[in-house]
Design a protein around this nucleic acid. Structure first.
Lengths: 207, 207, 207, 207
DNA sequence: GATGAATGAGGGTTCATTCAT
DNA sequence: GATGAATGAACCCTCATTCAT
């Protein structure tokens, strides 16, 4: 009957999906995936329960959709690959700051995803394989190069990525847990962390 | 006639509680709090559903009991306060290693608690106020002293605690997410992290 | 687009509520409130368990809904206030007969309510304050007037209402308990009771 | 092993049964049969849950035991059969007053029994057949005699018993429902009721 | 006999999902 | 496509009853 307005149709569908995912993000972050109800997500999105099932097969697909969208915007925000030939410290510091800012800006979504990922074996595996591991895979050669250049001390690149990721991830967790200091200092924290990770806490004279 | 079973009784009750909490820890870590069922916890504990309700008022109290027990064993394992006059680096490294080992050994419990804490406003507040914040309160003066002594560079102690905690917490998260490298290297990681946090990633010549 | 279903919708909702209340009345009367199960009420109503919870918040609200409906139909059936200037005996006898007939016709509902009210402190207080006491408040001035007119002997109106109400309530109880005589004679009983209450059991000569 | 101290043993058993029934009466009246728990009855009786099952087969037998005991004490208090040759009005008034007083004194037990009887088909039948009907059977010939003597107007004795019983039962119900007037006037109410039932509410001149 | 921990069937309630409108 | 009433599976929890001590 209705002709296929492919591009317009697709945009409408995309808009609806985003509307629903926004509502889901909000409700998941407030209440966690399991306690969130379709009814409430629909209410927040301003649509009827049943409508959600036109755009997502089931509640789980909502979470996957959310993860997927988060991942996409992450990649969009991410210019790691374009490290190019910038001076190491400058690039690294800028990248690190940008990364933390992005995570902070998407905190609700990260909280919803992490929350569920921690308690969902299947999702956990997928999340790690599709999102975290690829980041490592991109970063490790970069650190290897820096070591080879003599910019960095000799640690296994795999360990370097873990330590840096840990710090960022842990900071995000502290923020989610409501730590006031992290929240108040979010402007300076990326630089402080970068400084500590690169030059250490210890004063030089005692080295 | 009947023996005084106060002490014996108490021990039996404690044993049952632990048996149930062990089962709960396992099931919560596998399936998350919300998806875990009393039926399965009972099955894992090898008892009947109803028995759980003799020892815990409801499912929520199971989680609180688990948090409480984790907190207690944490305090028992913790000798931070006894830092005494040991050389800074030695003590710090040892403490850091011990802390990470403890967290690793209790990973399931931490996973269950973190998982739920992330998705439960009320629990989150309580967890942060009762467990995380006190740790900061103990550690900050220690770092202040080290700064005053000139052992550490001048950062706000509050930020130092956040960065260190973040790294530990993030590492735990990575392990929970199934990172193979973290698991394989858990012997050396505490030392690597300590080394990086204290002396930095950057090679010295470029300072 | 969608029709304005406010009025239609409201009627449908009312019909469903009544359908459920009818089923509840039947099951409560058979089995008492506490032993009645939502499953059976749903079965009798010909709907699914969950549907009941769309129309009533919980099982208790079913009982309150039932009480409320009974009270409403009672008020509708009640024209006491319209006693007007009819001759006392005629009006009283007619009213008394109508009242007993109404109670008999709603016996199941009364049985369900009385049953629960007897075993539920809170409901008891509410039922008495909202339903029984107001009836007394309406009736007492009427009897006072009859006494003042010299139609009735001098008893405290409060006591008269209690005695009459007792007789009606007790008769209802006997019927609920399965008394065959009350059931068979329900046609004449109102008149017999009225006759006894107004002119006494005793033969005149011996007065 | 233990010799059979039949009489002493029996007395101990009877005492225990009464202790339990007293507790049951109290808890049933407060909470109704269905909501009363064995645990609470045991607590009120000052014994362990399991002990109740030594003296009563199950919870239902508690109710039957209570009914039975109530019935026995009723019969003990009842000297209807001994009507003898006393003057009709004197005896009747005295009997009626005594009956109402007994019911008032045992109100808790009656409330528990009536409550449950209203909602329990099986019990209802038994209660009516064993307790109420026999009373009718005893009273009816008595009223027949009074009619034959010319002391009472000519009503079917079966109806007279129903009306009188209704009034008493209804009065008990009003008291159970918490009517303040009935409670305050319990001293005079038996006489008022008797007066109304025998000589009517209507003033004589209008006869 | 007395105890009370243990059992597990059963009930109230929630909520993801479906489907007639 | 959109709706939201209806469904019923599944969960938490209670409590009568049993039985080893």
């Amino acid at each position: 009957m209705t002709e296929q307005h492919d591009p317009i149709q697709a945009q409408l569908i995309e808009a609806r999906r985003n509307q629903i995912l926004d509502a889901a993000t909000q409700v998941f972050a407030e209440k966690c995936f399991a306690r969130a109800t379709i009814k409430e997500i629909a209410r927040v999105a301003g649509i009827a329960d049943g409508t959600i099932y036109i755009y997502f097969k089931n509640k789980n697909e909502l979470m996957l959709g959310l993860m997927h969208r988060l991942n996409q915007s992450e990649q969009r925000a991410d210019d790691f690959a374009q490290a190019g030939e910038q001076p190491m410290e400058g690039f690294s510091a800028a990248y690190f700051r940008q990364r933390l800012q992005f995570m902070g800006s998407q905190m609700s979504a990260f909280q919803a995803v992490l929350q569920e990922v921690l308690g969902n074996e299947e999702l956990r595996t997928e999340y790690f394989a599709k999102i975290i591991e690829p980041t490592f895979a991109i970063a490790e050669p970069y650190f290897q190069k820096l070591i080879d250049e003599g910019s960095l001390r000799t640690f296994e690149p795999a360990l370097i990525t873990r330590v840096i990721t840990s710090t960022a991830l842990g900071l995000l967790m502290l923020q989610m847990l409501g730590d006031k200091v992290v929240e108040e200092k979010q402007e300076v924290l990326p630089d402080v962390i970068f400084e500590i990770l690169f030059h250490g806490l210890a004063s030089r004279r005692e080295t």
